[in-house]
């Protein structure tokens, strides 16, 4: 039986009726049209479905929509605004960290959450903070460059 879920996504308030077997990923993608969140496996292995739930990154394919009741969610759509791209998104574009782009939304959400919690992650911490987001195209190298360009130590000066 459907139940009503109330949640905040990218600062917008939503109230939706969902079946208990609906995942958060499917709620976002198919019910709310927030298709920026991708699905590459549906079993927690790829990270394409990464969103931030109450401050922590999760695989939204392994969270029930009902579990998101009364939570705050950030998805890739919430990062850019009318003033432009988020600096991290800008860095992904500039550094060539995007190829097919299918892993990108999840990758950026993980990277943003990492930087939010630790403004100056080491190279190893960056790798660990992205270890659940598979990318088959880029070999990660330019992704590391993009994320590390946003570390507080590398800001303000040249990024090269």
């Amino acid at each position: 039986m459907k139940k009503i879920v109330t949640l905040t996504i990218n600062k917008e308030h939503y109230e939706v009726a969902v079946e208990p077997n609906r995942t958060l990923a499917d709620l976002l993608r198919y019910d709310l049209g927030l298709t920026g969140t991708k699905k590459g496996c549906d079993t927690g292995d790829c990270g394409a479905c990464t969103v931030v739930l109450d401050g922590d990154v999760v695989n939204s394919c392994l969270v029930l929509a009902l579990q998101a009741d009364n939570t705050t969610i950030e998805t890739i759509e919430g990062l850019s605004n009318e003033d432009g791209l988020h600096p991290l998104q800008e860095a992904f574009v500039e550094k060539g960290a995007i190829q097919c782009g299918f892993c990108t939304p999840g990758m950026i959400m993980s990277a943003k959450n990492l930087l939010d919690k630790n403004g100056n992650p080491s190279d190893t911490e960056i790798r660990e903070g992205l270890s659940g987001n598979l990318c088959r195209c880029t070999g990660y190298t330019k992704i590391f460059e993009a994320v590390s360009s946003q570390c507080s130590d590398n800001q303000g000066g040249s990024n090269e």
Binding site: V93, I98, G101
Partner: peptide
């Protein structure tokens, strides 16, 4: 910078 990437970075692609 690639022309398809702003859309890919923002989830619009």
């Amino acid at each position: 910078p690639r022309i398809d990437c702003p859309d890919k970075a923002t989830g619009k692609a």
